[in-house]
Design a protein around this nucleic acid. Structure first.
Lengths: 204, 204, 204, 204
DNA sequence: TATGAATGAGAGTTCATTCAT
DNA sequence: TATGAATGAACTCTCATTCAT
């Protein structure tokens, strides 16, 4: 049982990497089988089809990128501090699941895909609700003014990060040559503080 | 002569739409041939291969999205006004070339692609140089402080927009139901002013 | 013990139906396993292979379609009456084993099949021997003349019936709409009397 | 043009033989490609799919097995003579298209096939109409009585023949060992006269 | 220059069977 | 004895490309 589950998970892990690196269409099940060191028939055997494999990966990972209110909103913080935690946690989710977000963004561009984005939007809305709560508190505290809608605010949190990873090679030259670690550190140390600053400016 | 050029252009136009909608790999030359009402052999004949067709499309369009300093920096404006013009013009380029940017972002995610991004980065750097000049003037005028690097600033201009179009369906519900026109209008009327506000805040 | 035998029989029953409806090649062991509510591995386990399963089904059913002299030839009947009983009994066997005969005829067409027809021909010859006896008696009684060979006679008994079931849908419209029962009744009431009439005419 | 048509026809000819010998499902497009000395991709290229190839073969051959009234009914013949010509012509069509009829009978057994038999029944009905006309004349001439329906009569013409070819190996021993020619001769010389005799007996 | 015909390679999937327990 | 897991082989079909004219 667990043996089977191990292989299933292995296939999904390897597939996610390949899908994110080469795209779904450009990745063949033969490549997945080779990377996972399994027989090509196993993909159909376990998942039914390549498309179902994709769907299962997305469904799985959507659960992982959910934020939890208890980790973000603290009673002894003011709303600005909570907003800071929200942004840091959100970006951290992205950093920890870069491959998945790459895949997700590829898929979001494609119109014809079975994955319509609906399930992703549910998670997006869930996270947005927490942000909503923080901003509402901030307004009550007199710290924020409600200027743009929540969804627009969210674009200013996630957008700069997405732009960064989409242009990873471009920014690598700017940050430090080479390693992924230094790139992630640059995001945490330079990008995130500016995202926080920018976001607060929009709420003032 | 011009007849041939017409067909070449037609193929590129139709390909761009298909590539942006379905992705490069998922688009077959048969689909392109059908959409362009030409023989399948023509794509290889004209462009050498499907991959070369993609490269030519990208090379062509990169020229189109270049900004020109004379359209943006005016002597009788202060730097904040120029920055505003820069942002508006840049986003307008995006809006006018949505299909191309969709394709570009798909391709940027893919590691193995022949298209390395180099040529794109040249254009990106060209546009960045204009922004650089505006900010330098602003600092000289005492309006701006150089806090983050230019490249980071650029992420805050383009990022929110990218986030918007990637989640087009998500935001459609928020903006107005349906038409592409209303979506673009929302970008111009709501998103862009906030981008301007956010960017300036980072420079203060 | 009997439990195992039950499953074996179940598999054979379900297989016969599927083979006759879809053909041997077009029936997968997965379909059989599903229809029989057993594990896929069971077919190979019990029968060795799909082909052996087919052979066993045919071997089994060949026993069922054997006629017995004692049921057909009665001393107090004349040969014409015995011939009538022979034909009725033979066709009744067909009606009672429609699925099997469908399968048999499919297989007889195929040249390359392992099932060579030899075993079937043994049964066919067995039944023919009874017919032979009846006709011989008829000649002795002065009722029949031996015109065509026995085998040719048999073709005029079985042939019209085979033609009927092969064109079942065609004849359904002619007979009565729909049910299998009404179709079988038509065979018994209309076809069989004509077969008898035709056969006797050939022997006169 | 003709070159292409030649290959198309070659593929259909070879496919018909293979289908009739091994069955549709058991024949792979590789086997067809090899027998036709063409690339396997050609089957899809020319016919769309293996199934469409089958359909085209059936459609083609259905045209060939049509009888023409002018070849059968002559004014200076009586109805019995015309019936004799009808039977001879019909069986001759079968003999000339044995492979096709083998295939047809395989397909008629299968329920799930796309080929539903409808088109075949149209041809069957067409030929039946000619028989109908002959019998009607025969009744008018006082030669025949209308006993069973036309469709039943047809079963007594075609049935014995079908039974013969289905049990070809069985009857080979009876006729002459071996060659197809001697088998066909046996049908013409022995079977057909008996079919005529049997049919007339049913009409008296 | 232009194109219908043709091709080899590879795609995803399903097959009957065997393995390990 | 019984079965879920796993496999290699084969399946049909589509791919981008090239050939022949």
């Amino acid at each position: 049982m667990t043996h089977k589950e191990d292989k299933r998970e292995l296939i999904k892990d390897k597939s996610l990497i390949l899908f994110s690196e080469r795209g779904f269409e450009a990745t063949s099940i033969r490549q997945i089988a080779q990377a996972s060191n399994i027989n090509i028939a196993m993909i159909s055997y376990y998942f039914g089809s390549k498309e179902h494999l994709l769907e299962e990966i997305i469904k799985d990972k959507l659960g992982v990128i959910k934020l939890y209110e208890k980790d973000i909103i603290f009673n002894n913080n003011n709303s600005e501090q909570n907003l800071e935690i929200f942004i840091k946690n959100l970006i951290e989710k992205f950093i920890q699941n870069t491959a998945f977000y790459n895949l997700l963004h590829s898929e979001l561009v494609i119109k014809q895909r079975v994955f319509s984005g609906e399930t992703y939007y549910t998670v997006k809305q869930h996270n947005e609700a927490i942000l909503q709560k923080i901003i509402a508190s901030g307004i009550a505290e007199g710290l924020f003014r409600l200027t743009p809608t929540i969804s627009v605010i969210q674009a200013f949190i996630i957008g700069p990060y997405i732009n960064f990873i989409l242009n990873r090679r471009y920014y690598s030259n700017i940050a430090e040559p080479g390693t992924d670690d230094s790139f992630d550190r640059y995001i945490r140390d330079v990008l995130v503080p500016n995202i926080i600053k920018s976001t607060i400016s929009l709420l003032k």
